[in-house]
């Protein structure tokens, strides 16, 4: 059954009297526990799609349904892992997670249960050792792990990730991708992730949603990645399904929908 559905979502921005249509007719149905990637050239409106699902932006046309209910404001059941981690710099790692847990689960869990839940989520991303540190004292990869812990700790129905590993070096990124796969396998979250990394998309996703270039961007093609889980990055390198999926995405991005600005 469809868990999350985007129905004919479109959005336009008006600036200085000129209206630009950024998205048109974005239609997507996502099942519970599915891991979906959104890929496309920069400026195509991937982040806009995610922000509409998060409720941070309002669609001009169409709408988003989560378990049959319309989404029209931000909320913890659609937790966001922001591209630049967005940890509050005056709080320690633990306090950043605690802020979310204490606010979102105040009525569901007792104080002691919440303390335990905070520690559990820090342990999930291997950040227990740095719980007392402030964001500026830890590396970029660690910050992103805390961002993931904060989002997961809200017990979201859908986890929204906006290029979570975009700003990290390749080795750290691979490490975090492995951790994310492990967490996803264990918790079976529904995830929408934005990326512009083809390998990342193929490795992590059940389905890859490829977006056309803007303005008036929409979904160009949806590719299923029928690889069994757990996936091992080393074994996949020469797997025909993997290489085929990778080729499909590359073909879409660089042959059929090459970015004109880059070609120029």
């Amino acid at each position: 059954m469809t868990h999350l559905s985007l129905e004919q979502v479109g959005i336009s921005f008006t600036r200085a009297g000129r209206t630009t249509e950024v998205l048109r007719d974005v239609d997507l149905k996502i099942d519970k526990g599915e891991f979906v990637s959104l890929i496309g050239h920069s400026g195509c409106g991937k982040s806009t799609v995610l922000n509409i699902v998060a409720g941070l932006l309002k669609a001009s046309t169409g709408g988003v349904l989560l378990d049959g209910k319309e989404v029209n404001s931000p909320g913890p059941e659609r937790a966001v892992v922001f591209q630049n981690h967005s940890l509050l710099p005056w709080l320690t790692v633990r306090e950043n997670v605690a802020l979310a847990v204490d606010k979102v689960l105040r009525s569901k869990k007792s104080r002691a249960e919440r303390r335990e839940w905070i520690e559990h989520n820090l342990a999930l991303v291997n950040m227990t050792h740095a719980a007392e540190k402030r964001p500026h004292e830890i590396s970029g990869g660690m910050k992103q792990r805390v961002g993931i812990a904060r989002a997961l700790a809200m017990e979201p129905k859908v986890l929204l990730m906006d290029e979570p590993f975009g700003a990290l070096d390749a080795l750290t990124r691979a490490h975090l991708q492995d951790q994310l796969m492990e967490i996803h396998l264990r918790l079976k979250n529904t995830v929408i992730m934005i990326t512009h990394d083809v390998d990342e998309a193929v490795l992590l996703s059940d389905r890859i949603v490829m977006m056309t270039n803007g303005p008036s961007a929409t979904i160009g093609e949806v590719l299923s990645v029928p690889l069994a889980r757990p996936r091992k990055r080393l074994e996949l390198v020469e797997d025909p399904t993997y290489t085929h999926a990778r080729a499909e995405v590359l073909e879409f991005l660089y042959a059929r929908h090459a970015k004109p600005a880059i070609a120029a």
Partner: peptide, 9 residues
């Protein structure tokens, strides 16, 4: 920070 606050309600 405003977005974080919005998501947390």
């Amino acid at each position: 920070y405003r977005n974080v606050a919005a998501v947390l309600r």
